[in-house]
């Protein structure tokens, strides 16, 4: 057999035009919205941003890191409670408190990872849920942040309402753009490639010199940071927090729904999914239990019949990825 010598040149795929123009359109609309939009639009945008960031993180964790968690609400709630505690107890402005709370949440994720990482696969999922419950029950017994019935964020007293709404909106928009950009850059980087190698085969990846444990820990902590950010933002915008709302498993349920609809393990998945979720939530959430039965049922149907979600469906029909993280190997 003869060996062909080939010069292999690796290039990243060029950034595609269509998504970039859609992104510019979105940004243009979003940046100017406070000047022509109504106040409740801003509020709704902030709420949806929280769902979106949270879903992006769940996708990073489960879709790329292979860690299926049902306990991400632990970090969502912690983010909220950190903003509240810093604001109400130490007088830290929530605008500064939001990023600080995200960082504190990420620090909390370090010890919690020691527990969660002792479990694998499906038992990892339930283990993270237990951790979230422990955090919920612990917070519910701390009276200084309102105990079981929760409390209101008082740090905004004296701040002009319109200014507060606009500031919160700008922070939310910044967070959304930053989340998309950072995850896109990360997945296109060498580390991102390593992460996808781990997802495909841990053994093979570690034999290629990838430090699997470190990589997984990094993803877990980054996901906690993002979830904490989403929670901090949500409760800074909604001004009222309680353990049952902050640590509700429904947050993770919504994230799973968003990611499964959009496409798991695809960066454009949560973007499409959030849009669909927003439509459903906007028009059907009044149906209460029926709405939730529908969401659960749809998640089941998607994972049985359309495992790669709408993004995957579009990809199969058109052969195009919206936001490609693939590399192309060209031989000269």
């Amino acid at each position: 057999m003869t060996v062909h010598t080939q010069h292999i040149n690796m290039t990243r795929t060029p950034l595609p035009i269509l998504p970039i123009s859609l992104g510019v359109l979105f940004l243009g609309t979003a940046i100017t919205m406070p000047f022509w939009g109504q106040a409740y639009w801003l509020h709704e945008f902030v709420n949806i941003s929280c769902f979106f960031i949270f879903a992006m993180m769940w996708n990073l964790l489960a879709g790329y890191g292979g860690m299926v968690s049902v306990g991400q609400q632990a970090f969502f709630g912690l983010g909220g409670y950190f903003v509240l505690a810093m604001g109400n107890l130490a007088g830290v402005s929530p605008f500064i408190g939001i990023p600080l709370a995200a960082i504190l949440t990420a620090i909390m994720a370090l010890p919690l990872s020691k527990l969660a990482f002792r479990l694998n696969g499906g038992y990892f999922a339930i283990g993270t849920w237990v951790i979230a419950e422990v955090v919920r029950l612990t917070v519910a017994n701390i009276s200084i942040v309102g105990g079981g019935s929760g409390t209101s964020l008082t740090a905004f007293r004296g701040v002009d309402r319109v200014f507060r709404q606009h500031m919160t909106y700008w922070i939310a928009l910044t967070c959304v753009v930053a989340t998309v950009a950072l995850i896109l850059l990360f997945l296109r980087s060498k580390q991102g490639l390593a992460l996808q190698a781990i997802r495909d085969s841990e053994v093979a990846a570690s034999s290629q010199g990838v430090d699997v444990i470190r990589m997984k820990l990094a993803v877990y902590v980054v996901a906690a940071l993002g979830c904490g950010l989403a929670g901090a933002l949500y409760f800074a915008s909604n001004l009222r927090i309680s353990p049952d709302a902050a640590f509700s498993v429904n947050w993770t349920a919504f994230a799973i729904f968003i990611v499964m609809i959009g496409g798991v393990g695809r960066i454009e998945g949560p973007i499409i999914g959030t849009f669909v979720f927003w439509l459903i939530n906007h028009y059907l959430s009044d149906y209460g239990t029926w709405y939730l039965i529908g969401l659960g049922g749809l998640a089941i149907v998607m994972s049985l019949y359309m495992k790669d979600g709408l993004a995957g469906f579009i990809h199969r029909k058109t052969g195009k990825d919206f936001l490609s993280i693939k590399r192309i190997y060209r031989s000269k």
């Binding site: 049902v70 349920a253 799973i256 969401l295 659960g296 749809l298 998640a299 994972s303 049985l304």
Partner: peptide
């Protein structure tokens, strides 16, 4: 996990 979680809801 998604199927059983969905069923739970």
């Amino acid at each position: 996990l998604v199927v059983t979680f969905g069923l739970s809801i």
